[in-house]
Design a binder for these strands. Sequence first.
DNA 1: AGGATACGTTACTCGCGGTAACACCAGTCT
DNA 2: AGACTGGTGTTACCGCGAGTAACGTATCCT
Lengths: 216, 216
Amino acid sequence: METTRGAERQRTAAERRRRELLEAADRVVLRDGPQASMNAIAAEAGITKPILYRHFGDKGGLYRALAKRHTDALLSALRAALDAPSERRERVEATLDTYLAAIEARPQVYRFLMHPSDDAAPSPEQGFDVGRHSAPLLRRLGEELGKVISERVDLGPDSEQMARIWGHGIVGMMHAAGDWWLGDRPCSREQLVRSLADLLWGRLAEAGDLPGGPGF
Amino acid sequence: METTRGAERQRTAAERRRRELLEAADRVVLRDGPQASMNAIAAEAGITKPILYRHFGDKGGLYRALAKRHTDALLSALRAALDAPSERRERVEATLDTYLAAIEARPQVYRFLMHPSDDAAPSPEQGFDVGRHSAPLLRRLGEELGKVISERVDLGPDSEQMARIWGHGIVGMMHAAGDWWLGDRPCSREQLVRSLADLLWGRLAEAGDLPGGPGF
DNA sequence: AGGATACGTTACTCGCGGTAACACCAGTCT
DNA sequence: AGACTGGTGTTACCGCGAGTAACGTATCCT
């Protein structure tokens, strides 16, 4: 009975094929942006649409598979920065810098990852579902950072809750500032990193008011 | 010569019509979500598609007009909180709370405003354009807050730059935390507001390490 | 009256996501 | 050998939504 070995070989072949398709999709998405059509991707892979659908179900499936690869890569880079053996402030700056360097180096990947992917389930019942606007990447980063904070930082009672809030908040801060910076490039990366770290280090609380009206 | 008076009346009539169309569009978008079709909106307004296109150019135009109304409303509410005559910390908390209360009260509006609206210009030249992932609302809030900070807070040299960075960063923090909170509702709004303000007030820098591994 | 300028319609094109139906070509089971 | 299975691949189609062309009609100015 050769079934097991045969099935095995077929499975690995299918997986290789899948990887090839993903790489083709990657090329197209990085060239045309997130609105790349399934036709274009299929053409790039040298095949036709139905094959893509057999492998990935629908466009969302393909995009999710594609996103996972890049997300994993970015996440592991961030973890490395987060685990460096140094002072907390240095680690925070290193993490911010790693993220910003990544989106600076490959803005197309960044753009793709931030795409909401429109998995908005049309939810039949009146009143469509609410939240989940954020890209899955941001959710994941926020959760991950929350976990790290709660494991390592002493926040007193309700530590768990606060750590998650901070995780999502910090990630959001990093993302929004990064997105803005990437567009206008008003300053160097170092300066951006330092300013954000300063913000997290409470300089807003310490700063004095300027004359005229209430201080923020 | 009646041209001026006639033109005037026509213009105001057109504007009233436009407002009616926007209100119809509002109803549909708030019911069906951002993927509402132009057909549906036209039907709700009791007319047909071409009229919408005459008034707004394309779907993006309609959505931009729609977004402006809500954005302006939210922004004025935030300004009020930001201008209250009290301590800085209180004003910050009030502003956060105002934003969160708004997205809590009308999540559909929130969802619509955060929709990227896919104005991704297919930019003919190789390498499509990069940034501008964030919703226009966030950009605007970030700029606005940056202005307020730079006007009121004394940040020393490079104040302008840092204020803008902080503006976008704080808005991003608020948004990401709010989005996550709106989905899972893991705590009360008060608690969320206090935690975020604590974060901005430098509690991350002050907190001690927890045993085991490097502290964040 | 004559003509411009709005408002409104029907009926279409075009592109995209997704699918049905069919063909082919391995290896496997009897 | 010959039937069966499961993978790869195709062409041709459906449905739907954005956007447009062409046409008809009321209103108001000259």
